[in-house]
């Protein structure tokens, strides 16, 4: 296996093991750690998590596919997450999606980003960009280039 947790992450896992009644509860924290370490979650990482917390690999894979914030594929492009839930749809996320087609970015259509009051919303590298308009999207992406 080519993936292994960093020493700091392994220590964090040991601390977390004492916090929860079962190791299954560590599935999400471990997936986050793997994703921050590599940028995305590899199958190797899933196998390592499975071994580390003694939960079947399929269970970890299932969880990773369920949540849209986990990425299972690598990309060289900027990952832009566009919210697909109700408020954003009503406030024009379709237009934002259409507009993003003109940019060289990887667009992912994700579940609620938790900022309904400022819809439509997109997220890049853990930062939410709110009250989007096509012009605003251009400015933001230009600034991040």
């Amino acid at each position: 296996m080519s993936f292994s947790f960093t020493k700091a992450n392994l220590e964090r896992i040991e601390v977390l093991k004492n916090r929860y009644p079962s190791t299954q509860a560590l599935s999400l924290p471990c997936l986050w750690m793997a994703q921050y370490q590599e940028g995305y979650i590899t199958l190797d990482a899933i196998d390592v998590i499975s071994e580390t917390i003694d939960v079947p690999a399929m269970e970890i894979y299932r969880v990773a596919t369920f949540y849209t914030m986990f990425h299972l594929e690598a990309t060289q492009k900027k990952r832009v997450l566009v919210c697909k839930t109700l408020s954003c749809k009503l406030c024009g996320s379709e237009g934002i999606l259409e507009h993003l087609k003109g940019h060289d970015v990887l667009v992912e259509h994700v579940e609620c980003l938790g900022s309904c009051g400022t819809a439509p919303v997109m997220q890049i590298d853990d930062v939410n960009y709110e009250n989007l308009t096509p012009e605003k999207v251009d400015t933001i992406l230009e600034a991040l280039r």
Partner: peptide
Amino acid sequence: TDKITHTHELGIIGRGDEAKVSTMPG
């Protein structure tokens, strides 16, 4: 596969209308 054979090959992946039964890739 979880309870009888304990081999855990199958799972339901994805969510909503994209959910489907699958093995792990490969």
